[in-house]
Amino acid sequence: MAYRNPLTPYLRLTAAQVRSQAQYRFSFVLDLFGQTAVTVLDFLTILVLFRITPVLGGFELHEVLVMSGIAITGFSIADLAVGNVEQLAHYVRTGLLDAMLIRPRRVLPQLLAVDFQLRRIGRVVFAAVVLAVAAAASGVEWTWWRWLLVVTAPLAGAVFFSAVFVITATTMFWWVDSREFSASFTYGGRDFTSYPLTVFGGGFRRLFGYALGFGFVAYHPTLALLGRADPLGAPGWLGWSGPVVASIAALAAGALWRTGLRHYKGTGS
């Protein structure tokens, strides 16, 4: 008897995890506020910057807020869905990974489902609200394709950041736990993506923005939404490159994860 929907067992696992966390209602609410506050601080940083300067790399406050709105909404969805993968070393130590391996299901979705943290949802909601408000304040001419773009850009960003989470966590299969290394790409990538490419130096911009792909997540989609030409001279259609870049990143992440799992050494006990 196979499920018609192959996602069903994973959704059941997720639901069970949410139910078990709901037992600790007070700590859940506390965490929800704490997590949301972190995202509020991310945006406050931008507001503080604009007290010092009226334009940042050629962009005004509401424009940068659209950009960071896309970046942080995408990041927060990824963090909600797959952010736990950065605990991989912990899952290995506690034997959770072994417990997943002896079941007839894919390991990664099981791991994410059994340790799903619903309290991170506050971040997604807050970032999406900032994006909506900033887009409204920017006087975007709402054509149908701009509506499409404002929805797909954060989702493509979510897929892209999810891939980054998985790729950096997977390095653990070869090296020892490298949380700092991972964080410089995940959280570092989010911060990079929240600001216009124009504020970064050439080498850094080429590496993070184009070679690693972070520039396609929010910078180019924002230009397309606002109807602005790239001050750096890149073509306008790059605003639509997000889903393609995200798909490539996701495929790479999947391949790397499977290779890593073959190198899995277990724990010594």
Binding site: A99, I102, V114
Partner: peptide
């Protein structure tokens, strides 16, 4: 030395989840 059960859920719930995991 390891557990395949859900720590915070009643034992019965673990069994129910495993029914779905193993079809």
């Amino acid at each position: 030395q390891r557990s395949a059960l859900w720590w915070d859920l009643p034992l019965r719930e673990s069994f129910r989840l495993l029914r779905h995991v193993f079809d």
